[in-house]
Design a protein around this nucleic acid. Sequence first.
RNA 1: GGGCGCUUAGCUCAGUUGGUUAGAGCGUCUCGUUUACACCGAGAAGGUCAGGGGUUCGAGUCCCUUAGCGCCCA
Length: 893
Amino acid sequence: MTKELPKAYDFKSTESRIYAMWEAGGYFKPWNDPNKPGFDPNVEPFVISIPPPNVTGELHLGHAMFVSVEDLMIRYHRMKGYPTLWVPGTDHAGIATQLMVEQNLLRTEEVTREELGREEFLKRTWEWKKKYGSIITTQIRRLGASCDWDRERFTLDDGLSRAVREAFVRLFEKGLIYRGPRLINWSPGLKTAVSDLEVEYSEEDATLYYFKYMLKDSNNFIPVATIRPETILGDTAVAVHPEDERFKKFIGKTAIVPVLGREIPIIGDEYVSMEFGTGALKITPGHDPNDYAIAHKHNLPIISILDEEAKVNENGGKYHGLDRFEARKQLWADMNEARLVIKTEPYRTTIPRSQRGGEIVEPMISEQWFVQIEPLAKAALEAVKDGRIKIVPERFEKIYFNWLENIKDWCISRQLWWGHRIPVWYCPEGHMTCTREDPTQCGTCGSKDIHQDEDVLDTWFSSGLWPFSTLGWPDETPDLKYFYPTSYMETGYDILFFWVARMIMSGLEYTGVAPFHTVYLHGLIRDEHGRKMSKTYGNVIDPLVVMDELGTDALRFTLLVGATPGNDMNLSVKKVESNRNFANKVWNAGRFVINAINTLQPGAEPGDYTLADSWIWARLQNLIRDVERQFQNFQYGQAGQQIYDFLWSDFADWYVEVAKGQLQDDATKHQTTITLARVFDMTLRLLHPFTPFVTEEIWGHLRSALRDSPLHDLHKSQPEALIVARWPTPRQAEGWEAEKIADFELIQEIVRSIRNLRAEKNVAPSRKIAASISAGAKANLLNEQSKVIASLAGLDHKLFTINSSLKDKPADSAALVVGSVEIYLPLAGMVDLASEKTRLEKELKEAGSHIQRLENLLNGDFAQKAPPALVQKERDKLNAYKETAEKIKAQLK
RNA sequence: GGGCGCUUAGCUCAGUUGGUUAGAGCGUCUCGUUUACACCGAGAAGGUCAGGGGUUCGAGUCCCUUAGCGCCCA
């Protein structure tokens, strides 16, 4: 006999042990492996590449979310029999990691990366990575992630670096990569260029500065307004609308740049809005994207006035060396002195800020590398439009289209050290050499005097290759051949552009196929009132703390069931708590089942199914069917909810309660135990992808209980672990199901109505009371179920009679009417005739309103136009209400 | 400026080919230590499904519109 199981599920002593068991058992690895003997290339695998977390990161709820969803997808497919592969790994995360290491160096050794030098700094960063890089993967394991850890990859490891190199060289050779001075977003804090996506716009209070642009040799001026006066230093024109009556006379004349005294032209361009500001626009092509476009159109010179720290450079005259904001102040003061100032006013505008550093980003002219994105974007658009890739939920397809249709070239160079260095070498002649192997001489002139480009690639360039680079690309490895393209891409919608779109573009470009066929996007997690979690608010929920306190299953179940695809979810610890209770419920239902198995004596024949047995089976079949449908439609939350309801309400609250009686009876004990064991087993299977730990643990106990019991046959049909147990398949309905369900539901209604009355009349739960039932056509059914009704409703079975009709209505009793069934509870001394009358009248009124409603319905067009089956259903209902009403009326006489 | 999402019980949310009296968890109230579980059980209260209009035999669900909140893109 197995030892007594504790009353409460102890996740603390369970989770790590179960995880180790899974890993040791090799269950995380695909059963069909192209690198192993017996491999069958014709079996379709199911593959997900993990969204690689930052190697220096620490687990947050976003990770918990994607691990929960992806692990669910993986476990489900594994149980369905697919060879499943979930490829784990981490991202070097250029900016984030470099910043972290820099800050640490500054704090501990008081050195900057510049002082250390590139080589030494990289050495330190690798050391950092080795030291801390496994924290995140350890934490991901705690969530139960069933990844194939032997296939773990890192975006900067040798293989992936080779993939990056190959990808870059291919694009270069195709002419899709170019280098040149362009207006880019410059992050002065990070001292690097960033892509458009890495700039966030926030609406903030600013000041609009109005001033005079004096005309050359004249006292006339054009009033101009700007948010950034310091950019005046870089102005190369003043533009007005050609139709503007106020200013069009000035077109072609010359204006004088304040303080600097430079002469610039006044031009006409329809881009200028006559309504905005003063109706005239200063043109600073070196520091504004719109001005840059106008400058191109009018062949204006471009002047850059800021250096890499956003200090004014030599083009700023006397302001050279000042910080941009300091320069703004001084210049404005000087202009005030020169009587060029008109006024200032508060103004609300959008300010571009660096996603990473938070400081204001400056548009700047800079020499950078770009991917000519249009051809790639076109292919990526096609792949979703023609259905090769499906995005769930669908509405994100529109967003995806919109982005790709308006996409601009991708700035891929970063002025960082931590990352993949751009594989281009220059000779003194300025020739570029871009090769797969490091060159020793210039590919054009043969000069040995070559040096490599200093910049590294945008982190997302390497993550864009992730689904295939992790499988060995560019080599045609067995893994790549078998597992690529992958199946689902699951991630948060916030990186649809950053990552998903780029993977699709890269996948199509380099491998010729879409890297996955389905994109599933989950929402972001907010606090319980929908606020963003942030350290300053103090509303951050740490998944590690939650797991420590309430268990991994509880957290997973909360994330999976509380959310719908693509929608943000509000998380509260309360929800996790109630799901901790659910895990405990699973555990205890299991303890009950196991106890029944342990006390089963050998030799007995399984008897017939009772009504409850048939009912729970039929309900389980419905559940299996529903869950399957929901999984196909990515309705995981709905599926989880239904399993929860089945286990808690149908199985625990009803079936187990009935089973307690059936286990007392030798005639039904055996079959009841079988039903308990099998239904519970199936339920655990359905639940396993949601709450893997508690289900695996209790299933293990169930299995060993079966092994040592007369139900050994059931044990033999089980595999050695739930993680690899077969996913339940719905059976063909056999025809009896609906009737058994209806019959049992009648029992439930009778029981509920008796319980209700008892509660109303304050009958002590321990007190067994008498009852007599007039059951009409249901007399046989109720007689068969009399024990069930008696025990669930607290009736004294000896004082409980069921007849098809009663000659006399029992005196001094309360009457209940359930459909055509009348129930009399003789509650001597407790029945107050007046209140009984009120109660029955209330019920009659309710039945009457239903009758009214249904009669109206059936007399209308509904009867002609609705499906006949539905009409019949409503007719039956009407008849039932009529019958109920009749019975109540009889009571009231 | 363009697009998208949300608005359902006190709180947080489910509700996907339109079809019972709109559900759950938490919270509230009443009762209960019935040997699986008090991390529990039984019962109860609580909703004009944001407002308006339309399509339909039938609308929380589809269409139009208004408002509030949130997000994305420019």
